[in-house]
Amino acid sequence: MSYKILMGALFLLMSLLFLVSLLTGPANLDVFAALKSLTGYGNPASILVMQEIRLPRAILGLMIGATLGLSGAVLQGYLRNPLADPGILGISASASLGAVIAIYTGLTLTLPLALPLLAIGTAVLAVILVQALAGQSAQTLTLILAGVAITSLASALTALALNLSPNPFAALEIVFWMLGSLSDRSMLHVLLAAPFMIIGWLLLSLLGRGLDALSLGRDVAFTLGYSPKRMQWLVILGTAISVGAATAVAGAIGFVGLVIPHLLRPLVGAQPSRLLPASAFGGASLVLAADIAVRLIVPEKDLKLGVLTAIVGAPFFLWLVFKTRKGLT
């Protein structure tokens, strides 16, 4: 019963923040005019603002947040480790690399779909590599080291691309893009990323009961009838496709997948399957809230969303490491 209440509350919070996100911005629109413009009535300028600027931004905030929260919860459940997160494991950095390659080579100009596809491709490689490096037991330390190694490699290759960039302005643009932001995104970005994120969610949603069984270890999960191979592929493809698509349009937004499952776990009785939808709603709420915050804190400076989540998330990560360091041997 209390689970239903929690889910209801999280859904309400997410919807509310979605609405607030639509109503936040430099263009001074009152609530009524804004909502009217959203449906296509009113003066052309405010229709443009609502439909072409704020709506895609709010949709992307919601969907990317849900993706990050959900994939964080899945990775933590699958690796049986509360420190797993797409950012820490290097999946986001690898997706960034793919996106940078797509932008850098000019591929996106001829084929916009190359942006999410390349990001997804490099993200798939990253998840496979993390699993190979961390092994079956997925100890905290090996996991973090695997993430560090993959992030370093992806960052080095991204830096190489920037280094070789013929145009310094293009390089600067890529750097800003990599910081992670939802500003100036259009409906095209929504169309490019949304289908992939939804496919990723569907794959990840099949994992619920298997993740529950994994609480008891891989062997018991197997003897309860859950195929390790099937679960592995669902995790690899589900996280890589959804996080890859999210990163392709918004850059790397870190720590959402770490913080949200951690905060919500005690509220759902620590059951991994129940944590999945809760983390999706929670992640969406956090990203929407952070994206509202960057517009309110320093509206003239264009504070990047990824910078804000990192500033809040990194100390949280430190605290988590401190708390779990007994297990780090």
Binding site: A213, L214, L216, A270
Partner: peptide, 30 residues
Amino acid sequence: LLSYLPQERDVAWPLSVETLVGLGCKRNAF
């Protein structure tokens, strides 16, 4: 047909006893 009780007694998450025992049954999580 076969159930297994491994030597290791670790449980990854602080589940309630009732939830944990329920993992033996295959059912929808929600």
